[in-house]
């Protein structure tokens, strides 16, 4: 594989993070992680193990209390569009239409209205929401809103995508559809993706590689390569290869040393 030769686009080196307060919480401890260019990495971990904390460090909202994080070779200070971040919470802007939401990052970049429109047209088509272009988010379902959030980040063409359990609140069917939509988007315009989830199957279906975190304070517990052919489909989900890796990952995520 050529992956070993390319330098990591994103790396965390011995990162610890402690939330200060009356009772300080150690969220991460000595966590090291690399994401290669164009790699789709899934981070799996139990509730409260520090997944969001890790993403917020990469996004530039938190500074590690110990250790360092680098993106494309330089240290991260502050948020920026180069590291597109989709929050775990619903963060679609309710006072903007779907199109205005999609164009917000381009507006921030100073892109001219006509060019913004061209890009938002393209993404409206990609996520299948063309008829909702002038709808307000209150008219969208949770899953549709999340897709808009993902597309909103993609529209600025970032080098890296940080996704925090984007499909966490969806039912299994919608979730599968959203996963296919995301996989489709990713296969069409390759990006480096760091995808946080606590769903083993979702991680397997989407990722090239899976990192399993331990319970809080989070550190890397295990790595898995997912060498399943792309594009993946329903067939993939029931293939023997899929189930074999699933078993291994499942065992790694369970309680134990």
């Amino acid at each position: 594989m050529t992956a070993n030769a390319s330098p990591p686009l994103l790396e965390a080196l011995d990162v610890s993070y402690t939330y200060s307060g009356l009772t300080p919480t150690r969220a991460l401890e000595d966590l090291s992680l690399e994401v290669k260019e164009n790699e789709f990495l899934a981070v799996l971990g139990p509730v409260g193990c520090g997944k969001t904390t890790l993403l917020r460090i990469f996004a530039g909202f938190l500074r590690p209390t110990k250790g360092s994080v680098r993106c494309a070779g330089s240290s991260i200070d502050g948020p920026g569009w180069q590291r597109g971040y989709v929050l775990q919470e619903q963060a679609i802007f309710p006072w903007m239409t779907v199109r205005e939401n999609l164009e917000f990052g381009l507006l921030a970049k100073g892109v001219a209205p006509a060019a913004r429109r061209a890009v938002s047209d393209q993404f409206l088509g990609l996520i299948g929401l063309s008829e909702f272009e002038s709808a307000f988010p209150k008219e969208l379902s949770t899953g549709m809103s999340k897709m808009v959030e993902v597309a909103r980040v993609l529209a600025t063409d970032p080098a890296l995508l940080l996704l925090d359990e984007p499909f966490g609140a969806l039912d299994a069917q919608t979730r599968a559809r959203m996963q296919d939509a995301l996989a489709g988007l990713w296969e069409r315009r390759r990006k480096t993706v760091l995808f946080v989830t606590h769903d083993v199957e979702e991680a397997l279906y989407l990722a090239d590689r899976i990192v399993v975190l331990s319970p809080r304070p989070g550190k890397v517990k295990a790595h898995f390569a997912v060498d399943l052919p792309r594009p993946r489909s329903v067939e993939t989900r029931f293939s023997t290869g899929f189930l074999a890796v699933k078993r291994k990952v499942w065992e790694a995520t369970g309680p134990g040393p």
């Binding site: 996004a59 920026g80 971040y85 929050l87 990052g105 959030e149 600025t156």
Partner: peptide, 10 residues
């Protein structure tokens, strides 16, 4: 969340 999302979008 809105302020963070906006800052992340540049």
């Amino acid at each position: 969340v809105y302020l963070d999302a906006a800052a992340s979008l540049g």
